[in-house]
């Protein structure tokens, strides 16, 4: 452990209201509190000594931030829902199979027991496994502060590499996933460095809605190909109004390869990512055909 654990301060307040207040108060001071959920990513950074000394606000005990709730507008998933829960939640499995699938690919069982969906969002890694799914599902993020909540579309949440519209005084409260339209097929695929305990080289989630044989709506979202998770509107447009054919798929893949600019890094190469991302779009379309 390269970080000095004895110098870490972890603040723990009894309930959500007091937690939110503590966060808001600290945000104006010299050492804003950093909200901490499952801590699975945090621990890796601490071990490597890669974080500045900062104070943490523990959320783990706040049951107010747990629960998967059926609402008229869709399903509301609260911040601290773990991937272990999401991969087996009946509602999620039935209505958002891509999210259940993505949850099952996070780390491995031990990580899934601690890692939370809000942690994945707040951590903001472009390789976050659940994030392309949230993009493809048009998720809305509810942020709360002691004074007032607000909802933000997930497609406008990130502002850059690991930066977001979330103000340091705000907590992620929950994620609303609108009900999928009838005729929508969801697809998820993670291409990682190995079959478990892996970080993705490319990760894709798509939702393709087909009505009367034509695509009426398409979402193509990718991770690990840019500074944030991204949607690729040009590729989505290639499918709109089309029948799902290999030709349409290959046109979407072509546009996708033109629109994204992945990089070489420790896990893979730009060329490989580009090639695989194109193939994954074709696979997603082929999957929607079934």
């Amino acid at each position: 452990m390269r970080a000095a654990l004895s110098r870490l301060r972890v603040v723990r307040e009894p309930n959500l209201a007091m937690t939110a207040r503590a966060l808001e108060e600290s945000a104006e001071g010299p050492r804003p509190l950093v909200p901490m959920a499952g801590g699975t990513d945090l621990f890796v950074y601490l071990n490597a000594g890669a974080l500045p000394e900062q104070d943490y606000l523990d959320l783990w005990h706040l049951d107010e931030l747990r629960g998967v709730i059926d609402t008229p507008g869709g399903v509301r998933i609260h911040a601290l829902e773990t991937f272990a829960n999401l991969r087996r939640d009946p509602l999620v499995k039935r209505r958002y199979p891509a999210l259940a699938e993505a949850s099952s690919w996070v780390g491995a069982r031990q990580i899934q027991n601690r890692a939370t969906i809000a942690g994945n969002i707040a951590n903001g890694s472009p390789a976050g496994d659940s994030l392309p799914v949230l993009l493809a599902l048009d998720a809305r993020i509810r942020l709360v502060r002691f004074s007032a909540p607000r909802d933000v579309g997930f497609d406008t949440f990130y502002t850059g590499y690991r930066t977001s519209v979330r103000h340091p005084s705000e907590l992620i409260h929950s994620i609303l996933l609108p009900w999928p339209l009838p005729g929508t097929r969801q697809y998820f695929r993670k291409v990682g460095t190995r079959l478990a305990q892996a970080i993705s080289k490319v990760v894709i989630a798509t939702t393709i809605t087909v009505q009367k044989g034509r695509v009426t709506r398409a979402r193509i979202a990718l991770g690990s190909v840019a500074a944030t998770v991204v949607r690729v509107p040009s590729a989505e447009d290639a499918l709109l109004g089309e029948k799902l054919t290999p030709a349409a798929a290959s046109e979407a893949a072509r546009r996708l390869r033109e629109s994204i600019h992945p990089i070489d890094d420790i896990r893979s190469t730009a060329a490989h990512r580009l090639r695989v991302a194109g193939r994954l779009v074709e696979l997603a379309v082929a999957d929607a055909l079934r």
Binding site: V44, A48, A108, T193, R194, L195, A196, Q197, A198, I199, I266, R267
Partner: peptide
């Protein structure tokens, strides 16, 4: 799976998350 990566003459992938060995799944 296993490939040591170098950057400026130093081992780049020094962690279990990026020096990839097989798990039981692999």
């Amino acid at each position: 799976l296993e490939e040591l990566r170098w950057k400026d003459g130093r081992v780049w992938n020094q962690q279990l998350t990026n020096y990839i060995i097989p798990t039981s799944m692999d």
